[in-house]
Design a binder for these strands. Structure first.
Length: 416
RNA sequence: CGGGGCGUAGUAUAGUGGUAGUAUACAUGCUUUGGGAGCAUGAGGUUCGAGUUCGAUUCUCGGCGCCCCGACCA
């Protein structure tokens, strides 16, 4: 895409109503736009990144055996009343609304009840299980106070997978596989080395769960990290019992601040039993179904990447989720330079390399500043130098290193 | 939900009880072109309502909105 056609523009000034690094940088670079407190639109650049993250998650969830679906945001009151979560006393993040005839509805903040309710129509035999269903969808939570840009809003994108299994062994096996998938997702998003599978409290469903915590001073969680084992334990369960269960030793741990980017937990029959979701085994005997929930805050993950990967000039996208693979930047308005850049642009399009082509007639300084801010992982500069040397000047956004190469090997490296 | 703060142009900011200023962004022209260039010209603004006043962007009250701290956060 030509940058002259890009819908958004960069800004020099930080918006006055943002404090968090992710919101400031994403807004300045034209990825998002705040509509109201805790509610952000995703502009073309932001959407590109969001979709890339979603696709990584989709690939990993599919590899786990997950089947994708999309449940509704509008949800029935009676479904939520089954386990008492409609009442504002029990759940205080509801957005509730009404139909014209005064029938009450809620905007989904999660979909546990709804998916179980759905499955009562489809699951009845041991042959139907195990079953792993997931969706990537917008959730609504009426937070009392929003903060941290896109990391804690009232409307956000979440991936939620639900597992339905017959036995504890089946459940545990999947749970362990899911842990690995999750780490893969975070690695592919460029934050694998600072994200830890973290032993955490289980809340109302089971005693313990696992969170995926990314080290960052912008985080709100405190965890204790065992860097050798690559594991951590949340402060909430940082006691003797927790340590023993997690298999961690107090002396091996260091305290860190972190952002929760994912959470997996076993839910037992908390939802399946009340909804009468059972299956019949080989002997025709009625059996309970074990459920598990596996969440990733997709937009929060995007915000986390920005928090963690940036410098004073802008964002530093990891290759896999960079809005474009290459930022092609032409310098000056020398005819031959423009001709060369145009040719390279066309070649990339033909070869299927995703490219943002800064074809604007503005000075080099402005182009470089914008390029740094937007943060595309690889920059290709075409100016007089390239014309003379017949070499391509490639700058890596992350390391800042510039290398020379020729078009052929560049294409070979980036062609998908 | 408790406490505190703030609403002036697209953005960021001055200032004032009596015609609202700067930067940036935008438009036009000329110059310039490897790290946010220069000159000229132009267009663009006081969150809403009520009150006080001859007169309110400014003072008072209320609404709405936004931000921060805390609480909360399957």
């Amino acid at each position: 895409m030509r940058q002259s056609d890009l819908f958004t523009k960069t800004r020099k000034e930080a918006p006055k109503d943002e404090v968090s690094k992710n919101a400031i940088l994403l807004t300045r670079a034209g990825f998002i736009n705040k509509e109201m407190a805790g509610v952000y639109s995703y502009l073309p650049l932001g959407l590109k990144v969001l979709k890339k993250i979603e696709n990584i998650i989709r690939e990993e969830m599919n590899a786990l055996g997950g089947k994708e679906l999309v449940l509704t945001s509008l949800q029935r009151k009676d479904v939520w009343e089954k386990v008492g979560r409609w009442d504002d006393k029990n759940v205080d993040v509801w957005f509730k609304t009404k139909l014209k005839d005064n029938v009450e509805l809620g905007l989904g903040f999660t979909h546990d009840e709804q998916i179980v309710n759905l499955l009562t129509e489809y699951v009845s035999s041991y042959k139907d299980l195990p079953l792993y269903l997931y969706q990537i969808q917008t959730k609504f939570r009426n937070e009392l106070r929003v903060k941290s840009g896109i990391m804690r809003g009232r409307e956000f994108v979440m991936k939620d997978l639900y597992s339905f299994t017959r036995t504890e062994e089946e459940q545990d096996e999947f749970y362990e596989k899911a842990k690995k998938s999750y780490m893969k997702v975070f690695s592919r998003c460029g934050i694998g080395d600072i994200t830890f599978c973290t032993f955490a409290s289980g809340g109302t469903f089971s005693k313990y769960s696992h969170e995926f915590q990314t080290l960052s001073l912008a985080g709100e969680d405190i965890i204790y990290v065992d860097e050798k084992k690559n594991l951590a334990i949340n402060k909430d369960v940082f006691d003797e019992e927790g340590l023993v269960t997690a298999g961690l030793k107090r002396d091996d741990l260091v305290e860190r601040k972190s952002i929760e980017v994912g959470n997996i937990f076993k839910q037992g029959t908390k939802y399946t039993d009340p909804f009468n979701l059972y299956y019949q085994d080989e002997n025709g005997k009625k059996q309970s179904i074990l459920m598990g929930g596996y969440g990733i805050g997709v937009t929060r993950l995007m915000g986390t990447v920005v928090e963690v990967l940036s410098d004073d000039k802008g964002i530093i996208w990891p290759e896999e989720i960079s809005p474009f693979q290459v930022h092609l930047v032409s310098l000056g308005n020398d005819e031959n330079v423009i001709k060369l850049a145009d040719e390279i642009y066309k070649t990339f399009q033909k070869e299927g390399i995703e490219v943002l082509y800064d074809d604007r007639n503005v000075r080099a300084g402005e182009k470089f500043a914008d390029s740094d801010l937007i943060g595309i992982s690889t920059r290709l500069v075409i100016g007089d130098k390239a014309l003379e040397s017949k070499k391509l000047e490639v700058k890596d956004r992350s390391s800042g290193q510039t290398t020379e190469t020729d078009l052929k090997s560049f294409i070979k490296k980036f062609k998908k």
